[in-house]
Design a binder for these strands. Structure first.
Length: 810
RNA sequence: GGGCGGUUAGCUCAGCUGGGAGAGCGCCUGCCUUACACGCAGGUGGCCGCAGGUUCGAGUCCUGCACCGCCCACCA
């Protein structure tokens, strides 16, 4: 057995072996109980980042643990087509050649995206494998593959037939670059230096004017009202009168609306329903018209001929010049505020009105809310549960249409008379009038529309496949906080709507990984860390361990120390295994615990197993790493291995057999977090029947569950500490205890600095503390009896130890 | 503005249902003890953010405050 452990070659070899031997495979015909994770499909163009690595480390640990417990585990791999994101990447590539998608045309562009994906896409599954993710890679699915697309169209038709879908003119976030509506969740907000201008709107009766403040003077041309707060004393007499919009000289009403903030600007708001979301709401409330002056490209449209084709800056200049000439421009001041930009391309968002498809949420969300409230789906940590419920309660109708080309085109056809035909397959003729002149709706569906179906569309829905019967509903889902509204809630309500059951029972919201300096990880900041670099330096097992260790907080800093700790752990186990294997040649593993330290380590292994079960069950991954670290370093290596080493060196057959058996158990406990090093060692043990990955999770054995050994070891520990610090040997009761003491402390080699006085001082302090506690009547009467008893025991022990040191006061 | 989380050793963080302030790294000391120097043994180091409260007892529970972070949000 090599003295040095080299993770790189070992890890890739096992990844290939496990997959080739079919040990990741999940089969519908397998009668064992199923355990299923709904794992977020990465973008088809994506690269592995720390978020993926963390998700994989956590989900895979759970899957591996359950696999050892005898479950038929399904860990489904796949990709998301990621609509706008993917389209944008291909558009960027096109732009490098000086072309835009409009130059190539829709059909050719979509073909281009497919080509591009064949060349650059689908690489991330290789990286998933490098993380050791035990996915059934044969089952790879894509949200745009044929069967999945059928599911998406079926979902749309289903919603249409239930009357949940409708078309409506609504104000949307319009990206002038992508020429598409974006959801609120696809926006970024950036701070900009703007200008706030104060403009007078003359009253129609000539009796004066009202001054409004605006950051977007070009939209003055689309104003249809002036609004003030109903309680605003300054404008009490104004409501109901009429004002004149500058430049276009249109008479508009002054209305009262509570959405106006009296403290902002002059307290009077110009109402522009066509280009502002709040104004749109105010306009609908007051039945105002909804003209638009900005076109889809962000420039002025033809509505006002004088400014047609201008940029908004040019139009603003023209409007303000007009106002200035007439003394209507009161003042302009610098104004710093945040604006919405497209998160993909950074273009300033133009709110404008367009015809979109909407999905009514009131009926859909009701059963999902019931399921959440009843705890049929539980979020972890629980603080996210309330957030999930509240955000679902508040969910507005869902804008499902996008004006891009890459995605699932709406299964909607129009005839020249304006009739709609909604069908899964292209219809021959209009469903209403029978004409064959049909034009398909050019829009595609929101990418989350298909993601919502992931837990069951990947299993063959809408067909009732054996996979679907077997693996739905699943067990857990793991994702980032900001995805809850986009994905989690939608999977839950669509699962309930289409299959009548929630798709999973537990949702693990993992922490956000920050850069080591606490800043957000991002390519633009240069703070990104490539998980593959970490793997190259520390190994996959160490990376998985490190990620699990830091996963306990809401926002967690990446820590190289945690990876280094994982690496030390792997090396430590490797060396512990060497100690045993080098001495136990030709011995078969058997549980033949004869001596104290053997019964003790078996009890410790069982205790660790119970602790791990509890931690896995609570999804407390950090706790699991702590248990493993303590088990390996403190218990297994520093005490058990040291204690049993003389007997191993002497080739004591019982000691060797038991050591092998104990090592087997240790490796099994380790496997979910560090599968590679544990499998590598496992493969070198004698008489292997199966790979560790599919070997049983250890069962507890009550034979060595009692506390006697623990107490004896505790006595040895105390004696060792006192000896090392003071050179005084405390009397030990049994032969076993003395033997372990000698093996672990190696008295002949210990150089004692001999500060007996300091040790006496320390024990006196402890005794004083314990005596103080026990003298406290409140403590003795009200504290739990076992706590008081423990305190008494400690006091006794300290006194004994003090006596052993030959303290004159005893 | 709303929600969530954080504030404990020089650094990164544990501390679950209130009863001895902990780990890893760093630093200091001693050890190449035939598994491991990527190691072993020992040590230094802390008004547990601040102020109140509950309790015999608070890092732990309650209230308030301060600072930091993340997510969300329509202030023209």
């Amino acid at each position: 057995m090599e003295p040095r452990y080299d993770p790189q070659s070992v890890e890739t070899r096992w990844q290939e072996t496990w997959e080739a031997e079919g040990l990741y495979a999940a089969e519908a015909a397998d009668p064992r109980p199923a355990y299923v994770v709904a794992f977020p499909p990465p973008n088809v163009t994506g690269e592995l980042h720390m978020g993926h690595a963390l998700q994989l480390a956590l989900a895979d640990a759970l899957i591996r643990w359950k696999r050892m417990q005898g479950y038929n585990c399904l860990f489904q791999p796949g990709y998301d087509h990621a609509g706008i994101s993917t389209q944008y990447q291909v558009e960027k590539a096109l732009e490098a050649e000086g072309r835009r998608r409009q130059d190539v045309g829709r059909e050719a562009f979509v073909e281009l995206v497919w080509d591009w994906l064949r060349r650059y896409g689908r690489t991330i599954m290789t990286q998933f494998r490098r993380m050791g993710a035990s996915m059934d890679y044969r089952r790879e699915r894509f949200t745009m593959d044929e069967g999945y697309t059928r599911a998406v169209l079926r979902f749309f038709v289903h919603l249409w037939e239930k009357g949940y879908l409708y078309r409506d003119h609504r104000i949307v976030n319009w990206c002038p670059y992508h020429l598409s509506a974006l959801s609120d969740l696809e926006l970024d907000h950036v701070e900009v230096e703007d200008e706030l201008v104060y403009v007078r709107y003359p009253l129609a009766d000539g009796s004066g004017h009202v001054t409004i403040a605006t950051a977007r003077p070009a939209t003055i041309l689309a104003d249809v009202a002036v609004a003030v707060h109903p309680d605003d004393e300054r404008y009490r007499g104004l409501v109901g009168r009429r004002a004149v919009v500058p430049f276009v000289e249109r008479e508009v009403p002054v209305v009262a609306d509570e959405r106006v903030d009296p403290a902002f600007g002059t307290g009077a708001l110009k109402v522009t329903p066509g280009h502002d979301p709040v104004d749109f709401e105010i306009g609908r409330t007051h039945g105002l018209p909804e003209p638009m002056v900005v076109g889809p490209d962000g420039r002025m449209n033809g509505a006002v001929p004088e400014v047609a084709g201008m940029t908004q800056e040019e139009a603003a200049a023209a409007v303000l010049a007009w106002c200035e000439e007439r003394g209507l421009l009161e003042r302009r001041e610098p104004y710093r505020h945040t604006i919405a930009v497209c998160e993909r391309c950074g273009s300033r968002i133009e709110p404008l009105i367009s015809l979109q498809w909407w999905c009514r949420m009131d009926e859909l969300k009701r059963p999902a809310l019931e399921a959440l409230r009843a705890g049929r789906v539980r979020y972890h940590p629980p603080s996210q549960h309330r957030f999930a419920i509240e955000s679902l309660e508040a969910a507005p109708d869902w804008n499902v249409s996008r004006q891009i080309w890459w995605g699932h085109q709406l299964p909607v056809w129009y005839c020249p008379d304006g009739h709609l035909t909604v069908a899964e397959r292209e219809p021959e003729a209009c469903a209403e009038c029978g004409t064959r002149e049909l034009v398909r709706d050019p829009d595609v569906l929101d990418t989350w529309f298909s993601s919502a179906l992931w837990p069951f569309a990947t299993l063959g829905w809408p067909e009732r496949t054996p996979d679907l019967e077997r693996f739905y509903p699943g067990d857990f889902n793991i994702t980032a906080r900001e995805i809850i509204r986009l994905w989690e809630n939608r999977m839950i309500f669509s699962g309930l709507e289409l299959l009548g059951e929630v798709p999973f029972r537990d949702v693990i919201i993992h922490s956000t990984v920050l850069a080591p300096d606490g800043r957000r990880m991002s390519k633009s900041l240069g703070t990104g860390v490539d998980p593959l670099d970490v793997i190259a330096e520390y190994g996959t097992d160490a990376t998985r361990y490190g990620l699990a260790k830091i996963s306990s907080q809401q926002d967690t800093r990446l820590s190289y120390e945690a990876f280094a700790e994982g690496r030390s752990l792997a090396i430590k186990i490797w060396n512990a295994a060497r100690l045993i294997l080098l001495n136990a040649e030709g011995v078969r593993p058997a549980l033949a615990p004869r001596d104290l330290e053997e019964r003790w380590i078996l009890a410790r292994l069982d205790a660790a197993r119970a602790g791990l079960e509890e931690a896995w069950g609570r999804f407390d991954f950090a706790e699991a790493t702590r248990i493993l670290y303590r088990l390996v370093f403190d218990d297994f290596c520093d005490w058990y291995a040291e204690a049993v080493k003389p007997r191993l060196s002497a080739r004591d057959p019982d000691a060797c057999a038991t050591a092998l058996a104990a090592l087997e158990r240790l490796l099994a406990l380790l496997h979910p977090v560090m599968p590679h090093v544990s499998e590598e060692i496992w493969s070198r043990l004698p008489e292997r029947k199966a790979r560790l990955i599919v070997s049983p999770w250890p069962e507890p054995d009550p034979r060595w569950a009692d506390a006697e050994e623990a107490e004896a070891l505790e006595r040895v520990r105390d004696a060792a500490v006192i000896f090392r610090r003071s050179g005084v040997r405390v009397e030990l009761g049994s032969e076993d205890e003395r033997r372990i003491f000698d093996a672990v402390v190696k008295p002949q080699r210990v150089r004692v600095d001999g500060d007996r006085e300091a040790e006496i001082e320390r024990l006196r302090r402890e005794i004083a503390r314990a005596e103080g506690m026990l003298a406290n009547e409140g403590f003795v009467q009200k504290a739990p009896p076992e706590v008081v008893a423990a305190e008494r025991e400690k006091l006794e022990r300290y006194r004994r130890e003090l006596a052993a040191l030959g303290d004159p006061s005893c």
